[in-house]
Simulated assay, not measured.
Amino acid sequence: MTSQAATEAAENGARAFARSPGSGALAGKVRDRLAERWRRETSLLGTMCTEALVPSGKLFRPILLLESALAVGGDAEVVLPAAIGAECGHVASLVHDDIIDKDDLRRGKPSVQHKFGADNAILAGDALIFDLFSALAECRRTGASAERIVAALEVVARCGIDLCRGQSLEAELGERMDFDLDAYLTVVRLKTATLFRSACECGALLAGGDERMVRTLGSYAENLGCAFQIHDDLMSYTRETGVMGKPDTSDVRNGRPTLPVILAYQAATPADRAAITDILVGDGAPDVRRELLVSVMDRTGALRTADRLARKYSENAVAMASRLPVAASRDRLCGYARAAVERDR
């Protein structure tokens, strides 16, 4: 593939992802399997799991897993069950997040905890976590070796523990109103980037990738995950609920010091610092508090600074993906990294 063709493929991947996340044949297979995954289970649990999975979101993590398999020269059909599992695990984390944050909206519809209650939602999230492991085991029937499945299980287990560490640290930072940039970035790596890393490493492992390829894709995914989460944090203050499909006041309502808030605090005057703290711990209307916080961010340039950092991580991800063998999948991975900081939801 020529450099011009590679650039065009990457740009096309970015545009396609930004315009219609989860589009294409690979995503179609994942979406169809997800729709059927729990529908034969006629119990309340099956209903809740189906509600959580369907309609599907961007399908970013399963697509990353499939593209990683292709990038190391593997067969997407071999790792397809693992891709289904990646989405189950991701959705489980969203179900549990909505319980913790008391969010009533997810993907533009009532969250599982809002519709069925927190107790039932905990069970649904737990079931989807175990379904992730079940899906990985299904790769035995599609051609993955037992040794590589065990290696992938280790990656997923480590990811789950990191996810819990990140959630716990985030809660600690919120409780003590800690505006520590390094601690925030640690939370991002543990809560978000680890899911991306797990998807890419599992795809490469199950498809027969060597240690260098697995390591390269893991580094790509970690940078991509950081870019993705920082952009998400930005959208909480630059997009509205109707666009994002989830509450735009969640971070303010939960007193969460995300990157734009931390950067605003660090650059603010003493008066604005006091205002930021009051906004996050206050009891006023969340939409009013959000508007006041955005005004401080505008004065301090925090939104622009956060955007630059997200783009830096995106560029790092592109650089890592560029180390992979020349292939259309590699160029799509580069495109996804660029699109992660251009999307509006």
Rank of each mutant, 00 (worst) to 15 (best):
P247F: 00
A135V: 01
L34F: 13
E77H: 09
V326Q: 15
M177S: 08
A27M: 12
F228R: 07
M235H: 06
N12P: 01
P21D: 01
N120R: 10
L195W: 10
Y336C: 01
G13H: 03
E211Y: 03
L205I: 15
A76I: 13
Q113H: 05
G242H: 12
R308T: 14
T192Q: 10
A18T: 14
D210W: 04
A207D: 02
M297D: 02
D97T: 04
I276S: 00
Q113M: 08
L185Q: 13
A302M: 11
M320W: 14
P247R: 10
R31M: 09
P270N: 02
L173D: 06
T142Q: 07
A18I: 12
R40P: 03
P247L: 08
L45T: 06
R311P: 09
A310S: 14
A306N: 03
M320H: 15
T305C: 11
S219T: 14
L123E: 00
E154D: 14
G208F: 08
L66H: 08
R107Q: 05
E11V: 07
L181C: 04
G89Y: 08
A86Y: 12
A310V: 12
V296H: 05
G282L: 04
A71H: 00
P286S: 13
K109A: 04
P286N: 10
V341S: 01
G73R: 01
